[in-house]
Amino acid sequence: MLTIRQTERRLAVVALWGVAGPFGLGLIQSGLGRGSIALGLLGFALLVGGFVGQVIVNGLYGGGFSRGEIAFGFTAFGIAVLGFVLAWVFDPAFGTADIVVGLSGFAALIACFLVYLIAKYGLKGSFSMFHRTGRH
């Protein structure tokens, strides 16, 4: 059973993503649907904001991302990238604005994640972490 502190950390994370997630995804969808780069990028900015917010919550509660969160994050990111690539390849209506929004947004998310890793573990430590994880 979770302690009250663990419950509150989970609450903070879920509440944060409960707002940043739907609004971010909604704006990305609207941006892609209308070919509006500003709307799409605003959506990605909200997702980046959600990520940064969770890093702050982790810091306040003295922990990192849980395994479930990491798995969920990578799965969601993978599906989104796959969907983007498939749409780019197969959807004839996929325009330049959509490509700009998608590439910029995903690049921003990746950059954000790398900055987090480097800030938390250092340049060498980040690499070693993946290296170790890969070996086991």
């Binding site: 609450l11 879920v14 509440a15 944060l16 409960g18 707002v19």
Partner: peptide, 12 residues
Amino acid sequence: YVGTLQGLLLAA
């Protein structure tokens, strides 16, 4: 607990 998300949704 539910009020936390409600507060954020109200503002958003």
